Amino acid sequence: MPALPVEKPSARGTGMAGTRGEPASSGEVAERTSPAKRRRSAVRSAGAKDSARAGADHATAQAAELPVRGDEERWTETELAEVRTRLDGEIKALRAEILAAETQIAEGDTSDGAGDDQADTGAKTYAREHEMALAHNSRDLLAQSERAIARMDAGTYGICESCGKPIGKARLQAFPRATLCVPCKTREERR
């Protein structure tokens, strides 16, 4: 069954101008809203600007407070923003990849396998298990990326979860999902 098109509200207003999903012009939205609603909207918009400024100030303070090793310079707001943007991009890509893999797994081979020999059945099973393993790995990477963003927000980004020392700015720029410093990761891999 074909999917029905979904109309998305525009950023400028909740109304839709036509049936094809074009956003309503600001004049059309203004005509349909009362003066009281427009005042409340203006107040919310001013509050959003204030919170955006506060968020930028918080990001600057947050970047300066992140731990670094003694031989490294402090994080700048730009460097932290680049890492966050990279993680956000990876999160979006991983979500799309997971959705595609789950769809492919769900659709799978709809034949009942009648007439297949053992080699065909084994090949289909192997392919399906391989797809499931790839989807599982993508889910793990997604969880790690989301956790890295949460650690940024909490102010614990860059602290080794094993020893509590700084992970290292260069390591985090190369591998932003890192939760262990190089010595602790080396010890973990030796086990």
Score class of each variant (00 low, 15 high):
5 P>Y: 02
6 V>E: 13
7 E>D: 09
10 S>E: 04
12 R>C: 00
13 G>R: 00
20 R>Y: 09
22 E>V: 03
23 P>E: 01
23 P>S: 12
24 A>T: 07
25 S>L: 03
29 V>Y: 04
30 A>N: 05
34 S>V: 05
38 R>K: 12
39 R>F: 07
44 R>Y: 01
47 G>M: 06
51 S>R: 15
52 A>C: 08
53 R>M: 08
54 A>Q: 15
55 G>L: 01
65 E>W: 13
65 E>V: 01
66 L>H: 08
68 V>F: 01
71 D>E: 10
73 E>C: 02
73 E>G: 10
74 R>T: 15
75 W>Y: 10
79 E>K: 06
86 R>I: 02
88 D>H: 14
90 E>K: 10
91 I>W: 10
92 K>N: 05
102 E>C: 03
107 E>P: 04
109 D>A: 07
112 D>Q: 08
116 D>K: 06
125 T>M: 15
126 Y>K: 07
127 A>K: 08
128 R>E: 10
128 R>I: 03
132 M>D: 13
133 A>N: 11
134 L>A: 11
137 N>S: 15
138 S>H: 08
139 R>C: 04
141 L>P: 02
145 S>H: 03
145 S>Y: 01
150 A>I: 04
153 D>F: 02
162 S>E: 10
166 P>R: 01
167 I>P: 03
167 I>N: 00
169 K>I: 01
174 A>D: 12
174 A>H: 10
175 F>R: 12
175 F>I: 12
177 R>G: 03
177 R>K: 07
188 E>D: 14
189 E>G: 06
190 R>L: 11
